[in-house]
Computed example of a mutant assay.
Amino acid sequence: MQRTLVLLKPDTVQRRLMGEIISRFENKGLNIIGLKMLQVTPDLAKQHYAEHVEKPFYPSLEAFITAAPIVALAIEGLDVIKVVRDMLGATSGLAAAAGTIRGDYSSSRQMNLVHASDGPEAAKRELELYFDDSEICHYQPVLTPFMHAADEA
């Protein structure tokens, strides 16, 4: 099983789309093993977006991500990083395909509702920024045998 971090950004919270988006991950058969609402501080934003801090667009990115609460999700599943990123769609909601989260709910590049880790190393680093080990709940849903074959795990 692979893990990834998903952030429901301030626009998701403000637009009251949290449940709608979380249900998409659950309906896909992914396991939410950590979930919390928090306010991103400027310091946390700088840690999370370290590769962008010196870029000209960073101040507006920080202002956006710290403007309202977010919901952080630790999600586990088979090939979950790719699965989640495919579910999100293209970064810009205007370019995202219909049926994806961004394609259905976003019309902006920056206010694109959701962040997801882009690879295993990023997922590990980002999960550690948002969750302590004690905040991750390990469990096996009783539906797992009906979600994928045992030899796919």
Rank of each mutant, 00 (worst) to 15 (best):
residue 91 T to I: 11
residue 77 G to L: 02
residue 152 E to T: 10
residue 46 K to L: 11
residue 119 G to C: 11
residue 12 T to L: 04
residue 64 F to P: 06
residue 71 V to R: 01
residue 123 A to C: 05
residue 105 Y to N: 09
residue 4 T to S: 13
residue 94 L to R: 15
residue 61 L to H: 04
residue 143 L to P: 03
residue 18 M to S: 13
residue 48 H to I: 09
residue 106 S to N: 03
residue 147 M to K: 12
residue 35 L to T: 01
residue 99 G to K: 08
residue 53 V to C: 13
residue 94 L to D: 10
residue 115 H to V: 14
residue 55 K to D: 04
residue 96 A to W: 00
residue 66 T to W: 00
residue 91 T to M: 08
residue 18 M to Y: 03
residue 107 S to W: 04
residue 52 H to Q: 09
residue 8 L to A: 08
residue 62 E to R: 03
residue 18 M to V: 14
residue 106 S to C: 10
residue 45 A to C: 15
residue 55 K to M: 09
residue 67 A to H: 06
residue 104 D to P: 01
residue 10 P to A: 04
residue 47 Q to F: 03
residue 15 R to E: 12
residue 13 V to E: 08
residue 137 C to L: 14
residue 145 P to Q: 03
residue 3 R to C: 07
residue 12 T to N: 09
residue 45 A to N: 14
residue 133 D to K: 15
residue 106 S to V: 00
residue 68 A to V: 07
residue 123 A to N: 04
residue 63 A to S: 11
residue 102 R to E: 15
residue 42 P to W: 04
residue 45 A to I: 08
residue 14 Q to W: 02
residue 49 Y to N: 00
residue 34 G to P: 08
residue 84 V to S: 05
residue 16 R to T: 14
residue 35 L to W: 01
residue 86 D to W: 05
residue 56 P to I: 04
residue 10 P to C: 06
residue 73 L to I: 12
residue 57 F to K: 08
residue 90 A to H: 05
residue 108 S to Q: 04
residue 108 S to H: 13
residue 17 L to K: 07
residue 117 S to F: 00
residue 121 E to A: 12
residue 37 M to K: 13
residue 18 M to W: 01
residue 5 L to F: 03
residue 141 P to C: 12
residue 23 S to C: 10
residue 55 K to E: 09
residue 98 A to V: 13
residue 103 G to A: 04
residue 123 A to F: 02
residue 45 A to H: 12
residue 72 A to W: 02
residue 80 V to K: 13
residue 12 T to I: 04
residue 151 D to I: 08
residue 124 K to A: 15
residue 80 V to G: 12
residue 97 A to Y: 00
residue 31 N to F: 11
residue 100 T to Y: 08
residue 5 L to Q: 04
residue 100 T to D: 09
residue 53 V to G: 10
residue 149 A to I: 03
residue 115 H to Q: 08
residue 79 D to A: 14
residue 25 F to L: 08
residue 41 T to D: 06
residue 96 A to L: 01
residue 45 A to V: 10
residue 58 Y to R: 02
residue 144 T to M: 09
residue 15 R to C: 08
residue 24 R to Y: 10
residue 144 T to Q: 08
residue 21 I to R: 01
residue 102 R to C: 14
residue 1 M to A: 03
residue 60 S to A: 13
residue 142 V to R: 12
residue 147 M to V: 15
residue 81 I to P: 01
residue 130 Y to F: 15
residue 49 Y to T: 01
residue 30 L to C: 04
residue 10 P to R: 03
residue 25 F to W: 05
residue 93 G to M: 06
residue 67 A to T: 15
residue 63 A to L: 01
residue 130 Y to E: 03
residue 18 M to P: 00
residue 35 L to A: 13
residue 84 V to I: 14
residue 50 A to M: 06
residue 104 D to M: 10
residue 11 D to R: 01
residue 112 N to F: 07
residue 5 L to S: 06
residue 43 D to K: 14
residue 136 I to N: 07
residue 11 D to T: 01
residue 47 Q to Y: 04
residue 152 E to N: 11
residue 3 R to F: 12
residue 41 T to P: 00
residue 89 G to N: 02
residue 88 L to I: 04
residue 15 R to M: 06
residue 83 V to C: 07
residue 117 S to Q: 01
residue 43 D to M: 09
residue 152 E to W: 03
residue 18 M to G: 07
